[in-house]
Structure formats: C-alpha cells, structure tokens
C-alpha cells in the first residue's frame, strides 16, 4: 500500500516536471492566499508587537517607549485580575465542555431513534451567531425578569431573585455557563465522529472477555479517542482563551472588572479608551499563553504517536 502510493507520487511528479515548471506555477497559485495572509495576518501580527512598544493613540502615531506599557501593566491590578479571570474562565469552561461534551457524544453514539435529527439540533447553539445567542442569555440572566429565577422561585427552591450578572461570583458563573452552552455542541460532535471510527468488534471482544461498561469506556473508548480529544480540546481552549463576544455582550467586564478577560480589557483600553499601544501590549501578553497551549498539545500528540509505534 505504502509502496504503491510512493511510486504513483514519483511518476506524477516526474510527469509534472516534464510538462511544466512547477516552481513558477506553484508561486502563481500560492500568490492570492499568500498575499492576503501576509498583508492582513503576518504584517498586523508584527505591527501589534511594535505597537506594544509605543505610546500610540487613536489619531496619533506613537513613538517608541520601550517596555513602558509592560511596566505599567505589571503594576496594574486590573490587568492581573484579567489574567486570572481568563485562566479561570478557560480552565473551568474547558473542563465542563469536555466532560459534558464527551457525555453527550457517548449518548449520541448509542442506537437512538431519530439519531441524525438529534445530531442536527444539538449543533444549533454552535451555528447561531454568538452575539445573538448571548443577547438571549442576557435576557435569561436579567436581574429582575430572569426566567431562571422565576422558575426556581415557583418551584420553591429559592426565595429571592438571583442577581446573575451583578454579583462578581454569579457573573463569572453565568458567563462560564453561557460559554459552556455554546461550546458543548462542537466538542460533542467532533468526539462523536471520533467515537464512530472505533471498530465495534473491539467492544464485542472486550465484552466477551468480561469487561463491564466502565471498563469498556476506560480501556477501549478513551485510549482510542485520545488523539481527537487532544485536538478538539486544543481548539476549544484557544477559542475560549481569546473569547471576546460573550463577555462584551453580557457584562462588558463588570461587575468591578470581575469578568474582564484579556481580550475585553485589550478592547476597552485600546479601542474604547484610545490607548492603542497599551491595548496592543495586553493582546501581545496573550501570545505566550496561546503558544504554550499549542506546544503542549503538539508535543503531547507527538509523544503519543511515538508511543504507538510511529507512523502517519
């Protein structure tokens, strides 16, 4: 199998080499994508790092001021609070998304009537624009007319309305809940796809060997699912860490900065406050976290492949 693909590749490249100059053709083909990405992604990335070293404001190009922005942020308790919030938000939301998403994936992997229908509607929270569903949550979390408070009071579980977004702890819990609500479908559907690639015969063999349900999950499902879990959760962590929309809609970082994430603080200082340099510095401060998350998952995956005997 491997040798046939290698030989077809060989012939095709030899043929291509005979007919056309591949180098030039490739360059032309890469041009549109490369131009778009270099101009609007690579350059701004560099510009962002540069802006972090300047005192640029809206309407005024800044001058180089070295590490002053970072020194200022180092002593800024709000910045450190936003770092803490971001880490808390990412950790708690990712764990919940993983556990609940995996659970939902396992349920959907059962032999259900209307399976494809359930799979389709479960994805809805992920398809709908985040800002628009966040507005629905804003109304659900309203301090006076929250439907959750009302239902709980009617059921006699609580006796006064919950101040969802006005109290620091509640506000954190509420935005995490909204984020988890939006993230579960993505995790569940990708893990479901992973579950469907596990051969049924493995489960049957394990059952014949006397494995119980927990053992089936622990020793068959989980090991075979690990690679896709790692990738899914990397994406999930990255998107949660850089989240902006939910917070901007629900709390704008309040109350008393309790839900400010680094992205929202960067927007508040950089765009609303006009301090482009400082905002860019906050954004740049996110990069080390993102890089370590990517590297962690990359090397985690590499090791696993190597353990399983290399290949692919």
């Amino acid at each position: 199998m491997a040798s046939t693909t290698a030989s077809t590749k060989g012939t095709s490249s030899r043929l291509a080499g005979l007919t056309e100059s591949r180098g030039w053709l490739s360059a032309w083909f890469m041009l549109p994508a490369a131009a778009l990405l270099l101009v609007f992604l690579t350059y701004p990335l560099g510009l962002g790092v540069w802006l972090g070293f300047t005192d640029a404001r809206i309407g005024r190009p800044g001058i180089f001021i070295g590490l002053e922005n970072y020194e200022y942020l180092w002593d800024d308790s709000v910045f450190w609070l936003s770092v803490f919030n971001t880490l808390l938000y990412t950790t708690v939301a990712s764990i919940l998304k993983f556990v609940l998403g995996l659970w939902l994936a396992l349920i959907l992997n059962e032999n259900l009537p209307l399976k494809s229908f359930f799979r389709a509607i479960v994805l809805l929270p992920w398809v709908v624009p985040t800002v628009l569903s966040a507005i629905a949550f804003w109304w659900i979390f309203d301090s006076q007319f929250s439907i959750i408070s009302w239902a709980l009071i009617e059921m006699g579980i609580i006796d006064q309305r919950i101040n969802f977004l006005g109290d620091p702890t509640n506000a954190r819990a509420s935005v995490i809940a909204a984020n988890v609500w939006r993230g579960i479908p993505f995790v569940a559907i990708t893990l479901l796809a992973g579950l469907q690639t596990i051969p049924q015969s493995l489960y049957e063999a394990a059952t014949l060997d006397g494995a119980g349900r927990w053992q089936l999950f622990r020793y068959v499902t989980l090991p075979l699912l690990t690679p896709i879990i790692a990738i899914t959760m990397t994406f999930s962590v990255l998107f949660t860490f850089t989240d902006f929309q939910l917070i901007y809609v629900l709390t704008r970082g309040g109350p008393v900065n309790a839900t400010h994430l680094m992205a929202t603080l960067s927007f508040q200082r950089g765009i609303s406050g006009g301090q482009l340099g400082e905002g860019a510095a906050i954004a740049v401060a996110m990069i080390p976290f993102l890089l370590s998350a990517i590297l962690f998952s990359y090397f985690g995956l590499q090791r696993r492949k190597w353990q399983q005997g290399g290949g692919d």
Binding site: K9, S13, A16, R22, G23, L25, S26, A27, F29, M30, A33, L37, F40, L41, P44, L45, L47, G48, L51, L238, F239, F241, T242, D243, F244, A263, S266, F267, G270, I271, L276, G279, A280, A283, V284, M286, I287, L290, I294
Partner: peptide, 28 residues
C-alpha cells in the same frame, strides 16, 4: 503541485488558523 517547501507552507497555514482575531484587531 507539491513544490519544495509545500509541507512547511501547509503547516504555516494551519498555524495561521490558530491566530485569534482578538490579538489582531488593534493593529488591523
């Protein structure tokens, strides 16, 4: 076309997907 360096370009494109808008919006 599998030009020389195409693997690296493929990887670079994947990494580009991981660059989040929330760190690009100020310079952009």
């Amino acid at each position: 076309l599998r030009f020389s360096g195409s693997r690296q370009v493929g990887l670079a494109i994947f990494l580009a997907y991981l660059v989040p808008p929330s760190i690009l919006f100020i310079p952009l």
